[in-house]
Computed example of a mutant assay.
Amino acid sequence: MNTREKILTTAAFFFQKNGYHVTGLNKIITESETPKGSLYYHFPNGKEELVTATIKLIGDTIQHYLEEELSKNSNPVQAIEEFILDIAQKFNEKDQENCFSINLLALETVSISESLRKTCIEVYDLWTDTYYQKLVDSGFSSEKAKELSLILQLMIEGAITISLIRNDTTMLVSAAEKIPILLDNK
């Protein structure tokens, strides 16, 4: 792992665990075991640039995971159900600091920076487009897939957020159970 990757990986962990405002750059430098100059070399505009890169990293990681999971089953109902249940299982197996979403980081940062708000929108749109493509590839009309992909995004992200807050997976399991109803007819 190169220095930039070490900094980003460490930043992603601490921004998810402690939040944007609590996580200081010195903590990231110390924990990533990188020189202070390296952080400013790779992120010359400071913390905001680092958070932007972190949101993109988390977004890309989740995007790759989402595409991989949805490609395992040609049936969109089963693929999306299994994806949500897999998130629930991973939630139970690992510390919650592991990235399942950018929700909490997004909520904390969008009001402080237009650039961060736009980065979050890009990530959410990327995920919504992935659901859209899965539905279109499965025979849904473009119009119906557009509507349903947005609902899927809202439902899954909401279930993740509530699961984090409650420290249980009831909402994720409930969301998975509703997928057959939501995607009942094309």
Rank of each mutant, 00 (worst) to 15 (best):
A88P: 07
I112C: 08
Y40K: 04
T54C: 13
Y20L: 11
T9N: 00
I7A: 01
K178Q: 14
A12T: 13
P180H: 07
L152G: 06
E49Q: 07
L105P: 05
S38D: 06
E114P: 09
F91Y: 08
N75R: 12
H64C: 01
S113H: 10
N75P: 08
K90A: 07
G46N: 04
L25D: 08
A88I: 04
L85I: 08
L152Y: 09
K94L: 14
M155Q: 14
L148H: 13
T9P: 00
F43A: 01
S71C: 02
F91Q: 04
E108W: 11
I29C: 06
T161P: 06
V110P: 07
F14C: 11
E33P: 04
N45V: 02
S142P: 05
G139W: 08
I7E: 01
E33F: 09
C99V: 09
C120H: 03
I28C: 06
A159Q: 01
T30I: 15
N167A: 14
P180I: 07
T170Y: 09
K47V: 03
I80W: 05
N75Q: 08
T10A: 03
I29V: 10
E97V: 15
Y124T: 04
I58C: 00
T170I: 11
F43K: 00
E5W: 02
L148K: 15
R117M: 11
S174K: 13
I87V: 12
N92S: 07
A176D: 01
T119A: 04
T10M: 01
S113D: 09
C99Q: 12
T170H: 09
I80T: 01
L70I: 06
G139L: 13
N185P: 03
L182G: 05
K134G: 03
R166M: 05
A106Y: 09
A106D: 07
I112Q: 13
D125E: 11
K90Y: 08
D129N: 15
Y65H: 08
I28E: 04
E157I: 01
M171V: 09
N75H: 14
Y41P: 00
P35M: 06
N103G: 01
I121V: 15
E68Y: 07
F91R: 05
M1C: 01
T161V: 11
A11D: 09
E122K: 11
A12R: 10
D137I: 01
L39C: 12
